[in-house]
Amino acid sequence: MEEKHREILQLLEENARIPVETLAKMVDLPVAEIEAIIKKLEEKKVIVGYSTVIDWSKIVETETVTATIDVKVTPKRGVGFDDVAERIYRFPEVRALYLMSGAYDLSVVIEGKTMNEVARFVSDKLSTIDSVISTTTHFQLKKYKHDGVVFSDGEGDHRIVITP
């Protein structure tokens, strides 16, 4: 992949709403060429989507519970972990799914309205899959940083530091 392509991807990853004209100036290419590169990267599924990072904790009516679930599975002959991963990522509660190294095989990130909803997902849907051996659920208490964006209310400790 060309260096200009990587540069464009990095800029889009930081701000997907950056105007094409601004992007063209930043990488020193014509607007038409930038548009063609972006279209090509979308067609090749290098760019798979555009998203916005939102601090949902500031909108009380939409508060949700996020959990990361470590899952130990028995891989299936011929397809490895892909078959069970596909069954898991098809559930609408699943926000992300990763194959991991270490003690657990899969890491599943889910969202629910309540802790009970997350618990029901684990007991009724996830743990009933044949290949699932065990699960460990971790509830997210506070989000400090996500996708490179720091979540801060700007209120730090404003006390004067006193040293002996």
Rank of each mutant, 00 (worst) to 15 (best):
E93V: 10
G148Q: 08
K125M: 08
M100D: 06
K58A: 12
I54C: 09
G156Y: 07
D153R: 15
E86S: 07
G112E: 04
S51W: 00
V31E: 15
M115T: 07
D105Y: 08
R17Q: 15
F81W: 01
G112F: 03
D28I: 05
T68M: 15
V79H: 07
A24P: 02
L41H: 02
G156Q: 04
K113M: 10
K113S: 12
I37V: 14
D70A: 11
E13Y: 07
I54H: 08
Q140C: 09
S152K: 13
E155Y: 08
S51E: 11
D153E: 10
E7A: 13
Y144C: 05
A36P: 02
D157E: 12
Y144N: 13
A32G: 08
M100C: 12
E61K: 15
P30N: 01
K125W: 04
R77E: 15
D147C: 07
E35V: 00
I160M: 11
Y89M: 12
K40Q: 14
H138E: 09
V108F: 03
I34H: 01
A85S: 14
E14H: 06
K76I: 00
T163A: 12
I133A: 01
G78H: 05
T66A: 11
I8M: 04
K145V: 15
A103P: 12
E42H: 08
V132K: 13
I162A: 07
I47N: 02
G148N: 08
K72A: 14
D70L: 09
P164K: 01
D83C: 05
R87E: 11
M26E: 14
G112D: 03
V73E: 01
H5S: 15
L41C: 05
G49H: 02
L106G: 04
E42I: 15
V150R: 15
D70R: 07
L23R: 04
S57Y: 05
S152M: 06
V46L: 05
V71C: 04
K39G: 00
L126V: 00
G102M: 02
S134E: 13
V84I: 09
L99V: 12
I18P: 01
A103H: 11
V71F: 06
G148A: 11
R159I: 08
E3T: 13
K44H: 06
K125V: 00
K40W: 07
F81L: 13
K39S: 06
K76L: 09
Q140H: 07
S101T: 13
G112S: 07
V46R: 06
G112T: 03
P19E: 10
S131W: 01
L41M: 15
S123A: 11
E117G: 13
D153Q: 12
A103D: 15
V46H: 05
E7R: 14
A32L: 11
G80R: 06
T135V: 00
Q140F: 00
I88L: 03
V149C: 07
D157Q: 03
I37F: 03
S101P: 03
A16E: 07
D105F: 04
D82K: 10
L126Y: 06
S51Y: 06
R77I: 00
E117V: 14
V31C: 03
E14Q: 10
A16T: 08
L11M: 14
D28A: 13
K4G: 01
E63L: 09
S131N: 14
V73S: 02
V31F: 02
